[in-house]
Design a protein around this nucleic acid. Structure first.
Length: 375
RNA sequence: GCCCUGGUAGUGUAGUGGCCUAGCACGCGAGCCUGUCGCGCUUGCAACCCGAGUUCAAAUCUCGGCCAGGGCG
């Protein structure tokens, strides 16, 4: 169940009710594909302000496997996270050469990257796995095309996504967990509209926008999200999968998105990219060698409370493993704090002013439309 | 004093006459990362100990010097 409590133009603040608690929206989920956020413990995630995380059903089904998870009566008790857990279906792994063997409208042939074995999964299989894992919110299996695939191909992926969506819904036990559907369509207006309408018309508990943030660039992403949102019920929670960066989160909340997840904060942290109120910096640069200030002057995270830029810089330069923890904790805290501020500003009807103030200080990267490819 | 061996980016190395405007790794600099298998990706910087020869052509061969390591006295 989802309830909107405040609206400020398109932006909304509300509550998503799940079996493991209420999630205040809009919110961001750290990624815990294998049942843990990289380098950060559940207790720390709570301190950081995370209300929910997202794990990966397909990956967990490979390791540790459903038998183990069933012995623990589900993922929550296994990983010791008693708040909300989403599970991604594995649809995104279709983009990955190391996972995908082939896919057609019957289902997906996934490779097990650990031992090379191939196995066929129907949408029903995936739903069954997600139910057994015991997440609070399951994601439907979708067929994610690469950015840059032909329109014909993307139309076909979208068609299959729709077939799968219906089958996921049909086989899903609504009493056990919430189920979100995912629209596709690439950045093609007609395909995206059609897909948003189709998924919206099914009885999902939430609607996700999939296949974005994969190289199309900010402008295409915003335009596409906006197009899709026109055809999605206002009352349903909207989830933009795979986003993202501080700047994208703010802008997308402004479009009316309630829910996000992304590896962006943690992946950046592992590569030296640190979020600050002035913009993203690379902590490995020499200019921080003697900098006694915290990573971000305005941050109250445990890392900023204690350490200097110079020390963190040193940890990165010397490849000390703990640098990943500090970087991840800071970046995740930065994002959770941002979401908290965003929620507050919506409640006070000051979202636009908040956004303006944020971008006054936050320097955007020069190259915003860099393409990258999954392998 | 004599003999041997070796001197290639900051470091470690590849290269024994033309394929070397010298390769690789680490380093240093710049950029990137968006439903994570990934301490990753892209790109730039930086060297043939010195001198004289041989040769159409030398990091590579010869001679002298300097330096380092080893052996003999």
């Amino acid at each position: 169940m989802f309830k909107i409590n405040y609206e400020d133009k398109e932006a909304r603040a509300g509550k998503l009710y799940t079996k493991h608690g209420i999630v205040e929206t809009p919110f961001f989920m750290p990624i815990a594909t294998k049942g843990t956020a990289k380098q950060v413990s559940p207790d720390e995630l709570k301190l950081i302000g995370s209300q929910a995380i997202i794990a990966n059903a397909f990956v967990l089904h490979l390791k540790p496997g459903l038998e183990v998870l069933n012995n623990f009566k589900g993922i929550h008790k296994f990983m010791k996270w008693d708040k909300t857990i989403f599970t991604d279906s594995g649809g995104f792994q279709i983009l990955s050469k190391s996972f995908l063997h082939k896919a057609d409208e019957k289902g997906v042939y996934f490779k097990n990257p650990f031992d090379g074995s191939k196995k066929f999964f129907t949408p029903e299989d995936i739903i069954d796995i997600e139910e057994q894992i015991g997440s609070d919110v399951a994601m439907a299996l979708d067929f994610v095309p690469h950015y840059g695939n032909s329109k014909d191909y993307i139309a076909e992926c979208t068609r299959i996504t729709h077939l799968w969506a219906e089958r996921c819904l049909k086989s899903h036990d609504a009493k056990r967990q919430l189920l979100f559907g995912i629209c596709q369509g690439g950045i093609f207006k007609d395909l995206r509209e059609k897909s948003a309408k189709f998924i919206n018309n099914l009885d999902f508990d939430g609607i996700a926008l999939g296949g974005l943030g994969i190289g199309e660039g900010r402008e295409n992403m915003f335009n596409t999200a906006q197009i899709a949102l026109h055809h999605i019920d206002n009352a349903k929670p909207r989830y933009l999968m795979g986003v993202g960066s501080p700047e994208d989160l703010i802008d997308c909340v402004g479009l009316g998105i309630d829910c996000f997840d992304s590896r962006f904060p943690t992946m950046n942290a592992r590569h030296g990219g640190i979020f600050t109120s002035q913009g993203k910096i690379n902590i490995e640069k020499v200019q921080y060698k003697n900098d006694e200030n915290p990573l971000d002057e305005n941050c109250k995270c445990p890392v900023c409370k204690k350490f200097s830029k110079a020390f963190i810089h040193h940890l990165y330069r010397t490849h000390e493993p703990i640098r990943d923890r500090y970087g991840n904790i800071h970046n995740l805290y930065f994002i959770q704090n941002l979401m908290k501020d965003i929620r507050k500003s919506i409640k006070n009807n000051e979202f636009n002013q908040f956004k303006k103030d944020f971008f006054k200080n936050y320097k955007l990267n020069k190259n915003k439309n860099t393409k990258f490819t999954y392998s």
